[in-house]
Computed example of a mutant assay.
Amino acid sequence: MEFTGSSYDGEYYNGRMEGKGEYTFPTGTKYIGEMKDGVFHGKGVLYFPNGSKYEGTWEEGLSKQGSYTFADGLRYQEKNWDFCVGNDRQFYSERCNGLKPAGESQLTDLDPSRVIPEGCYDCRDGFYNPKTRVISNYKYNFLRNADDEEHEWIVRTCRKSWDEVVGHRREKQN
């Protein structure tokens, strides 16, 4: 494990991870639950660095059944999912707490929204600077370099800081 950057704190049997334990991946994702013969086996929860989690039942390292909960508390439903479909553009927090009054916009599910550094994009796990192609976390620590595919996706879909004029601009009167 020391070669992969992972760690394990828990019970062992015959030198293998077995029983209850906590396995931490190098990404910060953590599994807390039952192990058998060195793999996830039984009930356990995967906790992701962004605050989301997956609770499941595992057999020989494979999830057989489970449920995913987003960081904001929204539980994913495989059937009858009515969130973010069609013309529904509400954030989950708006569904839970109601819409703001007319004239008060909610830009993200996080309210108030994060302030984005000039020229950057908010890509959910941090800020992306398209000039340097670097993604930094919200404490401005390096996370990764974006490849071409991620760069295109961020520029196309993520919220950008207001460093350019948008909307109607009134012409000066002489």
Rank of each mutant, 00 (worst) to 15 (best):
Y31Q: 02
Y31N: 04
I32P: 04
M35V: 06
K36S: 15
D37M: 12
F48I: 00
F48C: 00
G51W: 01
E55I: 11
G56V: 04
G61I: 03
G61Q: 07
K64C: 15
G66K: 08
G66P: 05
F70L: 01
F70A: 02
Y76R: 07
D82S: 13
F83T: 05
V85I: 13
V85P: 00
D88F: 07
D88E: 04
F91K: 06
F91I: 07
S93K: 06
S93F: 00
S93R: 09
R95E: 05
K100T: 13
P101E: 13
A102Y: 14
L107Q: 07
I116T: 04
E118G: 08
C123G: 03
C123W: 02
R124F: 12
R124V: 00
Y128D: 06
Y128Q: 04
N129E: 14
I135Y: 04
I135F: 05
S136H: 12
N137I: 08
K139W: 08
N141G: 06
R144N: 10
N145T: 14
A146D: 03
D148E: 09
E149V: 15
E149T: 15
E149G: 08
V155M: 07
C158Y: 04
W162R: 12
W162Y: 12
D163V: 07
V166K: 09
G167E: 04
E171W: 11
N174L: 11
